[in-house]
Every structure is written in C-alpha cells, then in structure tokens.
C-alpha cells in the first residue's frame, strides 16, 4: 500500500518538475554568487519537503480523497505515507545540500568544512520539527488555511530565532563561539538530545495526523 501511495505522490510531483529544478538551481546558484554555502543547507531541504504539502492538496483537489479511500488504502497508512514522503524529500535534499555545500567549500576555499557540517547537523532537528508542524496543519485545514498556518509557524520560528540571537547579543554571548567552545562530547550529546526531541515531536505529530484522517468524512 505504501509503495502504491508513494508512486502516486512522485507521479503527482512530476507535474511540478520545473519548479523542482528551479529550486535546486537557485540553491546551487546562490552560493555560487554569494559564496555562502550554508544558505542552501536550510533552503533546499525546507522547500523540497514542502512538496509533500502540495501532494496533499492534489489529493484533496476535486474531492479526490473520496476515491482514494475506496482503494485498499487505510486512513492511518495515508497519514504515515505523507511523513515518509516528507522525510524522503527533506532527508534526500539535506544529504544532497550538505554534500554540495562541502564541495563548494572545498572548491572556493571559503568556509570551514566542519562549520558547514555543524550547521547541517543543527538544521536537521529544525527540519524535522517544521515537517512535524506542517503536515497535520495541511491535513486538518486543507491547502488554503494550511498554508496560512504554515506561514504562522515559520514566522514563530523566525521570531524565536531572532529573539534568541538578540538575547545572546544583549548578554554578550557569541553563539558560534559558544557552540565551538562546547567540549566535543558535550556537542555530540546536545545534538543527540535535539534530534531525539525532534523525533519525539515528529512521532506525536504523526499520531495527531492519524487521528485527523480517521475523523474525516468525504
């Protein structure tokens, strides 16, 4: 069942392949001009995992879900498949972007490779949490309201980020230095904890999405 649904979603995304390539092109092009290879680390995985949301809109379009659930497809299976798709897209893009950023750094000699890897690893839990937020919103509210909710979620994260950085500035803490100064062991533990927390959020979100789908009428 999973495989059938995944094939359906990839076939649906085929219709957006131009946009897909544009995103990849931009994320490759930006660092080529600006020299900042870390940009694509965030940009590419986030934007590509958004394609998951567009497959949800496609499924809903023209009441398509009604037919979908007459096929041998369970409601929970459908919800879980969207998470698998998001992780495949986001995860794949993350690996691709990290390799690309490292390649840029090597070619241009601009950035420190360990810094790039550090940034990549720190982005991973954020990527997971954002997907965990996006999917249930989209399933619950559909494409219109779902997108608004999504913008809200991004806004909130941005505000939290800015506040954190400002707070650090006010307190006179250099974040990079702080992270860099963490003992190697401490850093590893922190990232592991962050990842674990993110996965916990993701699993909770999956559970919520399953119950959203179970309650739907078509």
């Amino acid at each position: 069942m999973m495989k059938g649904l995944l094939i359906k979603d990839f076939k649906l995304m085929k219709g957006q392949k131009n946009f897909f390539f544009l995103v990849v092109l931009v994320s490759i092009g930006m660092p080529a001009f600006s020299g900042d290879a870390t940009f694509m680390l965030g940009f590419l995985p986030f934007v590509l995992s958004m394609f998951t949301l567009s497959t949800i809109s496609y499924d809903e379009f023209d009441n398509g879900n009604a037919f979908l659930f007459t096929l041998p497809v369970s409601r929970t299976g459908y919800a879980v498949e969207k998470y698998i798709l998001a992780l495949l897209l986001g995860g794949g893009a993350w690996v691709f972007a990290t390799l690309l950023a490292v390649a840029f750094a090597v070619i241009k000699g601009t950035a420190n490779i360990s810094e790039i890897l550090m940034a990549a690893v720190l982005i991973l839990p954020a990527l997971i949490v954002i997907q965990a937020l996006m999917i249930p919103f989209q399933l619950k509210f559909g494409s219109e309201k779902g997108r608004l909710a999504l913008i809200g979620a991004f806004g909130l994260l941005a505000v939290i980020g800015v506040v954190a950085v400002k707070a650090a500035e006010i307190l006179g803490i250099d974040l990079w230095e702080l992270i860099g100064n963490l003992p190697a062991m401490g850093m590893g533990v922190m990232i592991t904890l962050l990842l674990l927390a993110a996965i916990l959020v993701l699993l909770t979100s999956m559970k919520i999405s399953c119950s959203i789908m179970k309650g739907k009428e078509f």
Partner: peptide, 21 residues
C-alpha cells in the same frame, strides 16, 4: 464525484494500481 487525480495520466496510474491490488 471523485476519481484519480486529474493531474495523473493513465500511464501513471498503472504502477499505482499494480502496487495497491
């Protein structure tokens, strides 16, 4: 009032059906 997504082609739905049934 419902069916496969209009954005799919017949060629697209064959592997989907193969994997569902």
């Amino acid at each position: 009032d419902s069916g496969f997504s209009g954005y799919l082609t017949v060629k697209d739905i064959i592997p989907i059906l193969k994997n569902l049934y």
